[in-house]
Nucleic acid binder design. Structure first.
Length: 579
RNA sequence: GGUCCCAUAGCUCAACCGGAUAGAGCAAUUGCCUUCUAAGCAAUAGGUUGUAGGUUCGAGUCCUACUGGGAUCGCCA
């Protein structure tokens, strides 16, 4: 239940009673930024004044009685350019709190997704090494977005796509074979240029020895390449899945390029485009603004993407006749559409800019315009350690792994922190700051609020040993006793949760949840502190069990909403803080 | 050169399909721990939202041009 939406609907109904002609699509009821403006505000007069042929304030005068008659409205007034602000009776807020307690963790669930299947692809790193800091942000964004859309009523599939066929994977196989020889006791010296130098490859070699013994030793590459490659890919994927599990990420579906090709999906997709006369043989113009020494015009198999607004047509085959990288991706999205996804989200690094635009034409063609791909690009994370920028370099093997991050600062910090910026913005992850100055890390602030709630409950248990502190029991408290301004404000912040879920889901912007939780925690910390100086505002009053019960209901509500939000973030709602 | 993204307080960032006096945290200054956990609270200060126009009841948000920063362009992935 979104209380603002409820009032908006009631208001629209009332407006239609005045005149069925009104276009009320832009009428909204929302929470004013400034609480002194009241509980709710509507722009109805300003939006409709033209249709009514009146000036905004005069029209607002006419609408005022309408507002005052809405259920539970205590007062209403006109402000600014024609806003109508109104306040609700205490009872409305008490009822809302009761509702929250009854909904529990499911408070904020909405149906805006209408059960629509949505495919969220994220991480999708190729199996050539462990997860590192650079992968982490996209992983967290994707997973949080999936949680969010799930709560918003979509049918979510979390998908991982990897390439197990390209040159990168052959390099992996060669590295694995070298480490395999090492594990068999050969002195391999330094890892040659062009192979993966990381130590994580050692265990691959050892595992291969364990499985296959020395049967690949001294054989030619053509003999061992395929089996070793397969083994190494499998091993890497296992490693990646374990890494992701460290931050609570588990994909539903893994799809690989080889399957796309071998199952014939790629050929089918290509033929589909051919049949639509979108494939031809031609020559591309030389790339602009870039020195290309080895460029020469060659006839290639091209896709008429320019017909769909692309800058130029795209090559689908290389000059040697093999598929260009884009073709398997095209086929992969063809496959997604065939699997019933009309909404496909893809979380990618910003270096993939243009991916959406390159794939959109084919997606339009495959789905007849019904399917939509939305790529969420995220900027890089700069990792600082010991005051210095850590550069990622696979070559040197000098990478900060996801595992290291989790071991040093914990999964909760990693997950929450990654969500405190819009995906677009670059961010800095400073190990020292995150550990030393906890104020720099909002996850503590939010978790602390939850821990404080738990603390109040524990104290209540001591003060009133016979009181039933279950959420259900507390919801029967006399909530009319909650009438101080700060407590009511607390409820109003909670009232905004369903709307936050909806708007964040519609915009595909999960980071808003983090900011909301911060606000919610802030309201609670403030309320708590009021009780330090003014004992009449404490949650617990030894001499008034009923009042205590009512206030504990409020605390339980805060706990519930915090837990509900933290669930989306994939962060644990802790019961006490340590250290 | 084309395309896309970004520009908001000293720093890092918010601002809910365009709403009222643009908000937090950090850094600065000042109060609050015999009182439900001070990883907290309260307060002060800090702004021509890069520049110039436009659209309208109303613009940080939309449009145009410009300035500055980043990414991208391919038969690479």
């Amino acid at each position: 239940m979104n209380i603002y939406k409820t009032y908006e609907n009631e208001l629209v109904t009332a407006l239609k009673n005045i005149s069925a002609e009104f276009d009320t699509s832009r009428v909204v009821v929302e929470q004013p930024r400034d609480p002194s403006h009241g509980d709710m505000a509507t722009n109805a007069a300003m939006v409709l004044c033209k249709q009514a042929g009146k000036n905004p304030r005069a029209f607002a005068e006419e609408l005022l009685p309408l507002i005052k008659e809405l259920n539970g409205v205590e007062s209403a007034e006109i402000a600014g350019p024609g806003f109508i602000n109104f306040r609700l009776k205490q009872r409305q807020w008490a009822d809302l709190l009761n509702y929250i307690l009854n909904e529990g963790i499911g408070y904020g669930d909405t149906t805006v997704g209408k059960g629509q299947p949505v495919n969220i692809e994220y991480v999708s790193a190729n199996p050539t090494g462990p997860m590192h800091a650079g992968h982490t942000r996209g992983a967290v964004i994707g997973d949080t977005l999936a949680n969010l859309l799930d709560k918003a009523g979509y049918k979510v599939t979390r998908e991982y796509y990897f390439n197990d066929a390209g040159t990168q994977v052959d390099v992996l196989a060669r590295t694995a074979h070298l480490r395999y020889r090492e594990a068999l006791g050969e002195d391999i010296g330094d890892i040659p240029e062009g192979l993966y130098p990381g130590d994580y490859m050692k265990e691959v070699g050892q595992a291969l020895v364990k499985r296959d013994g020395d049967q690949w030793q001294g054989k030619s590459e053509s003999e061992w390449l395929v089996p070793v490659r397969e083994f190494a890919v499998e091993h890497m994927m296992k490693m990646i899945r374990e890494d992701l599990r460290l931050i609570g990420i588990k994909h539903d579906v893994f799809t690989n390029e080889r399957d796309i090709v071998e199952s014939g999906t790629l050929d089918t997709a290509f033929k589909f485009l051919e049949d639509l006369d979108l494939i031809y043989t031609g020559t591309l113009p030389p790339p602009k603004g870039k020195e290309m020494e080895d460029w020469e015009p060659v006839p290639l198999t091209l896709f008429r993407s320019s017909k769909f607004g692309d800058q130029q047509d795209r090559a689908l085959k290389k000059r040697d006749g093999t598929w260009a990288y884009i073709m398997p991706d095209i086929a992969y999205h063809y496959d997604k559409i065939k699997r019933g996804y009309n909404l496909m989200l893809n979380v990618l690094g910003k270096d993939h800019a243009g991916y959406q635009e390159r794939l959109e034409p084919t997606i339009d063609a495959f789905s007849n315009g019904d399917a939509k791909l939305k790529v969420i690009y995220n900027s890089i994370v700069k990792v600082f350690k010991g005051g210095e920028l850590v550069r990622f370099s696979k070559r040197s093997g000098n990478i900060i792994t996801l595992r290291e991050m989790v071991e040093e600062v914990g999964a909760d910090v990693v997950r929450f922190f990654m969500m405190t910026r819009t995906p677009d913005a670059e961010m800095e992850f400073d190990f020292d700051k995150v550990v030393e100055q906890s104020k720099d890390n909002p996850v503590f602030y939010v978790q602390y609020a939850h821990a404080r709630c738990c603390s109040v409950m524990r104290n209540a248990g001591e003060m009133f040993p016979n009181m039933d502190l279950s959420v259900k029991a507390l919801s029967s408290a006399d909530l009319s006793k909650i009438d101080d301004e700060d407590s009511l404000y607390m409820i109003k912040v909670m009232a905004g949760w369903p709307k936050m879920v909806e708007s964040a889901a519609e915009a595909f912007e999960p980071h808003r949840i983090a900011f909301y939780l911060n606000d919610l925690a802030s309201a609670f910390h403030s309320l708590w502190s009021k009780g330090r100086t003014d004992t009449t505002l404490r949650f617990l009053d030894e001499n008034d069990a009923e009042l205590s019960r009512a206030r504990l209901a409020l605390v339980a509500g805060v706990m519930t909403v915090l837990a509900s939000g933290l669930a989306i973030m994939g962060v644990k709602p802790v019961e006490e803080m340590h250290g």
